[in-house]
Design a protein around this nucleic acid. Structure first.
Lengths: 219, 219
DNA sequence: CCGGATCCCCAGGGATACTG
DNA sequence: CAGTATCCCTGGGGATCCGG
């Protein structure tokens, strides 16, 4: 394993998770929970299968993930984050917060999956009315689904489909993001091609934290 | 520039700072402030000069650093973080907090510089007596010097030498780290080869935050 | 001495094909 | 479905060289 050979916590951390794709693998495991090889591959468009295989092996050796042979009816191996791996969440949150500004330019060639947006949303918003009953927002795109759950645990993101979401958002990721950050209102988002169905009031539950929503920094 | 091509804030962030050495360059600029090419190279033992040059160019294009021609008597170009670059600090803090556990094993071949430890310390401690007058701890190793400043701004780290530090620590990095995290007391640190001179009481000003100092996680 | 640029070589990453 | 095998290529490591 390649190392920076520096007695520095940051360098040591990067020794383990600084290689290409590694933190994105952690992102997927964090959002999807225990999942199969194929689930990871689907959540990481562009990764080569040998590379994913190699990363999983390295991460297991480093103690960041565990590999478990699930009994039937699953009958396959599941990958899951260990506590040490889950402890990387603040790193992903910080990276995600910093990277938000970079989403201002929407590139047509970029892949998109709704759980990425759900996670971003859970990072930059808090529950605006913690006492109120829990609500669920469904995000749909590219034939996949993710959820933003607002409840006692705060704002949480996960992959999956809800039976009866309070609100469903579907459409161009940029307009959904702008709506969730509070950069635009629902009318503008709809005009930008977003389809929102359900109880639109649940959007008021999502309170974007300060210091986001500014235009992309040019300097 | 190589990109993950994913419309996800984490992936976009890694597009810019995910390559080898990049975040360590940011670490140095954050700790050293505006500095010369050689200062950066010294703070990044192991980096090839062409690679450092390349990274600086990329970071400038991305708007994370600025290059400035300083007038005499400096008469050289200084590199400095832009506001966007400085905004990466939470990322480095999170990585540093996570990487702390990895410092449990001390490898003889690893390079060490005192400002790395100073920064780590500023991440995992708070001022235990905010009302008290400011104090300065000097760290010495490998012929270099760094400072931990405890004052109105909290606990801050920077490269440099103090005229009259309240406390000076010199010796094996592991024992200094263990002392600062509270894992061992001063007597044990001294026994482990640490040399402490000055007012030893200032150590009580550094209050390690919870959830650190545990032994290295094996699972 | 500082601030790089150039060159060569190899390991790690990307794409695709193939197999249990 | 869950990877492995293969081939190619790019980016990184290391040394050296060069202008100011």
């Amino acid at each position: 394993m390649r190392s920076y050979r520096q007695y520095c916590p940051i360098a040591r951390a990067l020794d383990l998770v600084g290689e290409r794709w590694t933190l994105l693998v952690v992102r997927e495991l964090l959002l999807q929970g225990p999942c199969r090889f194929t689930d990871l591959r689907n959540g990481l468009p562009g990764i080569a299968s040998n590379l994913l295989s190699g990363r999983l092996k390295e991460l297991e050796e480093a103690g960041l993930i565990s590999r478990e042979e699930a009994p039937p009816p699953i009958a396959t191996t599941l990958y899951a984050l260990s506590p040490t791996g889950r402890a990387l969440e603040p790193v992903l949150r910080a990276l995600g917060m910093w990277g938000l500004q970079l989403l201002a330019d929407e590139r047509e060639e970029d892949a998109f999956q709704p759980h990425w947006l759900a996670y971003a949303s859970s990072c930059f918003t808090t529950d605006g009315d913690p006492g109120a009953p829990p609500v669920v927002i469904q995000l749909l795109a590219s034939g996949r689904a993710a959820l933003i759950e607002i409840g006692p645990g705060g704002v949480q993101a996960r992959v999956g489909r809800a039976l009866a979401p309070d609100l469903t958002l579907e459409g161009r990721p940029r307009s959904a993001l702008d709506l969730l950050t509070g950069a635009i209102d629902l009318a503008a988002a709809t005009r930008a091609g977003l389809i929102a169905t359900g109880n639109l009031d649940v959007l008021t539950r999502l309170r974007p934290i300060a210091s986001i929503g500014r235009p992309p920094v040019e300097n």
